[in-house]
Amino acid sequence: MDLLHPQLRAFTAVLEEGSFEAAGRRLHITSSAVSQRIKALEDRLGQVLVLRQPPCRPTPAGELLLRRVRPMQALEAEALADFLPEKNETNRPIAIAVNSDSLDTWFLQALAQLSQAHGYLFDVRVDDQDHTLELIRNGSVLAAVTAEPTPLQGCEVQALGIMRYQAIASTAFVSRHFSQGAQADSLAQAPMIVFNRKDELQWRFIRQITDVTLAPPIHYLPTSTGFVKAAALGLGWCLAPDSMVCDALAARELALVAPGLWLDVPLYWQHAAIRSDTLRNIGAALQNAASSSLGPVQD
């Protein structure tokens, strides 16, 4: 049973599944029926909502509608659970976004607790903490872990804590490249490991040390746990969360590039401002998990 209009159900299914065919399989109707429902919705609103190309993506008008529909889906699921608790069909994945480092450290603990306690399913999207907010803005997710403390219109924010990053490399790499310390000259020559082209952490750390514009050799390596292994193997230097490197530092498998310097990144939980038991439960679980791994956010 659905409380939302079938046209809205088809619209969200196409964007979540990426095609009319996949949406039809999920909704147990033909792809032609999916297309007819979306066309009828577009006619009603006088706007093209879906770019019909693989994968299907929302137009700007579609993003606006999707952002409005996401909270409605959460409230619909809660209403159906109240009246039809025996219906498993009401348990649909909750779309949320998180940065890779959080996902690989403290975040999964909260998801596991929520799944066991409430039976929630999750559709987790991964992006840099400076960019996850865009996934709320375009309607891709209902909520996100973000570095942005200022709420979007129609959203609320909870502080989670500070993730501390250390600049690390293998002991041999540090001896070879930073024997005189982390300075402009050494940072310009030493290979640097960066997650992807959105990753600004290493550059922010460099700006703490020097105002000189540098162009060091760069490895792009899109794996959080692989960062630590790559650094230990001498591929380059990088920033990694305390919790990922403390054991390797203690065992001297890794060394600090600049002892006494680090980068603190405050993290926040930003979500649609609706009276939702689901969002309240998720927020509480995330704050509990974050409290054992992250430092307190300073006012």
Results as ranks from 00 to 15, higher is better:
Met163Ile: 02
Gln153Lys: 09
Asp123Gln: 14
Glu134Thr: 11
Pro149Trp: 05
Ser170Gln: 13
Ala182Thr: 09
Asp185Tyr: 01
Asp128Leu: 10
Ala167Asp: 11
Val157Asp: 00
Gly139Met: 05
Leu121Ile: 00
Leu121His: 10
Gly181Trp: 07
Arg125Met: 12
Asp185Trp: 01
Gln183Val: 03
Arg164Val: 13
Ile136Val: 08
Ile168Cys: 07
Glu148Leu: 02
Val174Arg: 11
Ser186Trp: 01
Met163Asn: 10
Gln180Gly: 08
Phe122Ile: 02
Val157His: 01
Ile136Leu: 12
Glu156Pro: 01
Asp128Lys: 06
Arg164Cys: 07
Val157Trp: 00
Met163Pro: 01
Asp185Phe: 05
Arg176Val: 03
Ala147Asn: 08
Ser186Asp: 01
Phe178Ser: 13
Ala143Tyr: 07
Leu142Thr: 13
Ala184Pro: 05
Arg176Phe: 02
Thr150Ile: 14
His177Lys: 02
Ala167Ser: 11
Cys155Leu: 03
Tyr165Ile: 02
Cys155Arg: 04
Leu135Arg: 11
Phe178Ile: 12
Leu152Ala: 15
His177Leu: 01
Pro149Asn: 10
Met163Ala: 09
Asp130Val: 06
Arg176Gly: 03
Leu160Asn: 03
Asp128Tyr: 06
Asp130His: 11
Asn138Thr: 14
Leu121Val: 04
Ala172Val: 07
Val174Phe: 08
Asn138Cys: 14
Gly181Cys: 06
Ile162Ser: 08
Phe122Pro: 02
Ala159Leu: 05
Arg137Glu: 15
Gln189Thr: 13
Arg176Pro: 02
Ser186Met: 02
Gln153His: 06
Gly161Asp: 09
Ala147Asp: 06
Ala159Lys: 13
Glu134Ala: 14
Ala144Gly: 07
Ser175Arg: 15
Ala169Met: 01
Val157Ala: 00
Tyr120Gln: 05
Gln158Pro: 03
Glu148Gln: 14
Gln158Ser: 14
Ala144Cys: 11
Tyr120Cys: 10
Ala182Tyr: 08
Asp185Leu: 04
Leu187Lys: 13
Gly161Pro: 08
Ser175Phe: 06
Phe122Ala: 05
Val157Ile: 03
Ser175Asn: 14
Tyr120Met: 06
Pro151His: 14
Asp130Leu: 07
